[in-house]
Structure formats: structure tokens, C-alpha cells
């Protein structure tokens, strides 16, 4: 389904975020990508839909090579890959419905989307998905009125309405409490099973990854250092991925609430700084 072939990403600063990644994900598989901050997890999934341009190597989605596509080909390829984000990445001033329907932008023309006149099937599908993720009565709420868990559900609906073949999921639970985190992970996995969707899930939280993923890939400094089942994730393997640590001590404790990645600034536009000028 998804195949990465010697993917390398080198940033302008000279940092090699990815160092020759080979990875294959078959249809319907939920893969958890774990590794320390800065290991290249985010870069890896962004290289798949080319929000980040890989420096070299090839990415195949089915039979199609993504890396060589021109802009309209890339847009068509992006429709086939739904993405779910760490801080939900909803457009806050738009309604829940508009956020979900924005998942159809790759399929409708500009004026249709401008006047919010989406095809009837799209709207029906949006209603169906919103009820599937448990947000029936939130349709006309603005996205910034929702709680974290609810926002992530909107994010999931937006990704699924694309009718994708693959889900790219970037730290879906990093800003959520432990209970909501589990609910969101469960929902994502259920939906993948219902639709036999493949998913690559970046996740900080190792116990959560163990609980939900059928396959775990460990990344360290841009190199895959583990690829196997959750059961095979021994303390020795964890040390290889994350460095030395007393893994049993952290294992007996409850899942520590994970923090959002501090390397990604959460910028808020300063709307008022000019008022009164």
C-alpha cells in the first residue's frame, strides 16, 4: 500500500532528519511510529504527503510514485491520504461542518467550496461521520468552542471524509488527557478496521502504542532501529530507541500525561496589537 524507498530528508541547516528510510505498510495495518523527540517521526509522515519535500528517495502509494508528482498530481494524491494532527489543526473560526467538509476540497471546484455548496452526498457523508464520532449536535458550533477531545474527533472526521486509503496521524493524543487519549486511539483504530485503512501513527506514548498498534516501528536519529510486534518491544529495544532508562520503573507507573511537542511552537496570531493605533 505505502512504500518508502531510501527516503532521506536533509534540512537546510544540514540536519539529517531521515537517513535512508525503507518502510512498507500493507493495506489495513495500523503502524505506530515511536521514538524520541527529534527522531524524525513528524518529518517521516510529512514526507509521505510532501508537506515536507524529501531530499531523495521515493514514496509509493499503491502503484503511484508521489515524490515526482507535479502540483495537480500531488493534489490528487493528497486526496488519498488523510492526515490527523497533534493540535487538531482545525480552522478555529469555521464551523464544525465547514472543518469536516474541508476534507472534500480536493474533490470540488473553487466556487462550489467558496459558497459552501458541497455536493449533497458530501454533506450527507459529513453528517454520517459526525454522528459516527459522536458529534451529532455540534454541526454549527465554531471549532474553537469545542473541547480537545471533541476537536480531535472533528479532525478525524475531516480526514475520513476524504475517503482516504491511508491515514497519517501525527501525535493524535499529545494534547489530550489519558482517558481521552485512549478513546481517540480506540476510535482511530476502529475506523481503520471498518474501512481496512492503513495508518501510520506517530506517538510518544509507548504504552498507548503497545495497546493499539499491531506493528511498532522505532525511529532513532532518522534511522529505523526496531520493526516488529508490540510484544517484541523489550526493555533492551526501548533502550536502543530512546537511550538508557529504567524501563520497568516507568512501566509500573500509570501512563504519564504526555506533553505537546515543545519543538513545535503553538503560535496565536496577535489580533489586538494594533487596535487603538
Amino acid at each position: 500500500m505505502l512504500r518508502l524507498d531510501q527516503v532521506v530528508k536533509e534540512y537546510k541547516t544540514g540536519d539529517r532528519a531521515l537517513n535512508g528510510i525503507d518502510l512498507q505498510v500493507p493495506q489495513g495495518q495500523v503502524l505506530a511510529l515511536i521514538g524520541p523527540s527529534g527522531a524524525g517521526k513528524s518529518t517521516l509522515i510529512r514526507c509521505v504527503n510532501r508537506l515536507v519535500e524529501p531530499t531523495s528517495g521515493a514514496v509509493y502509494l499503491g502503484d503511484q510514485e508521489i515524490t515526482s508528482l507535479g502540483s495537480s498530481g500531488l493534489r490528487r494524491a493528497r486526496r488519498r491520504m488523510g492526515m490527523i494532527f497533534q493540535e487538531y489543526a482545525l480552522v478555529e473560526r469555521l464551523t464544525v461542518m465547514e472543518n469536516v467538509l474541508s476534507g472534500r476540497l480536493g474533490y470540488v471546484g473553487f466556487w462550489r467550496s467558496y459558497f459552501r455548496r458541497f455536493p449533497r452526498e458530501d454533506v450527507a457523508e459529513a453528517f454520517r461521520l459526525l454522528s459516527r464520532v459522536g458529534l451529532d449536535n455540534m454541526v454549527d458550533k465554531r471549532a474553537d468552542e469545542l473541547s480537545g477531545g471533541q476537536r480531535q474527533r472533528v479532525g478525524i472526521a475531516r480526514a475520513l471524509i476524504q475517503n482516504p486509503e491511508l491515514l497519517l496521524v501525527d501525535e493524535p493524543t499529545a494534547s489530550l488527557d489519558p482517558k481521552t487519549s485512549r478513546q481517540i486511539m480506540r476510535l482511530i483504530c476502529e475506523l481503520c478496521r471498518e474501512r481496512t485503512l492503513a495508518a501510520v501513527v506517530n506517538i510518544h506514548d509507548v504504552p498507548l502504542a503497545r495497546m493499539f498498534a499491531e506493528r511498532i516501528v522505532g525511529l532513532r536519529q532518522g534511522v529505523i532501529v526496531y520493526d516488529g510486534t508490540p510484544e517484541g518491544l523489550s526493555n533492551q529495544v526501548l533502550t536502543e530507541i530512546y537511550g538508557v532508562e529504567d524501563w520497568d520503573a516507568s512501566d509500573t507507573g500509570e501512563t504519564a500525561p504526555s506533553k505537546p511537542d515543545p519543538t513545535r511552537p503553538k503560535s496565536k496570531p496577535d489580533v489586538e496589537h494594533l487596535v487603538g493605533m
Binding site: R79, M81, L90, V91, L105, F110, K266, P269
Partner: peptide, 23 residues
């Protein structure tokens, strides 16, 4: 000054440039 993350998400849906601007 805008928050760069939602624009990234809209781009990831396969939106065109003008749609991206609008949404």
C-alpha cells in the same frame, strides 16, 4: 502572524491554492 498549523492541514486535504486561501 497566522497560526501555520491549520493551513498545513487544509493543504494536506488536496485543496487548491485559492481554496486554501479561502479556508
Amino acid at each position: 502572524d497566522m497560526d501555520p498549523v491549520p493551513p498545513e492541514a487544509v493543504l494536506a486535504t488536496g485543496a487548491s491554492w485559492f481554496q486554501w486561501l479561502n479556508y
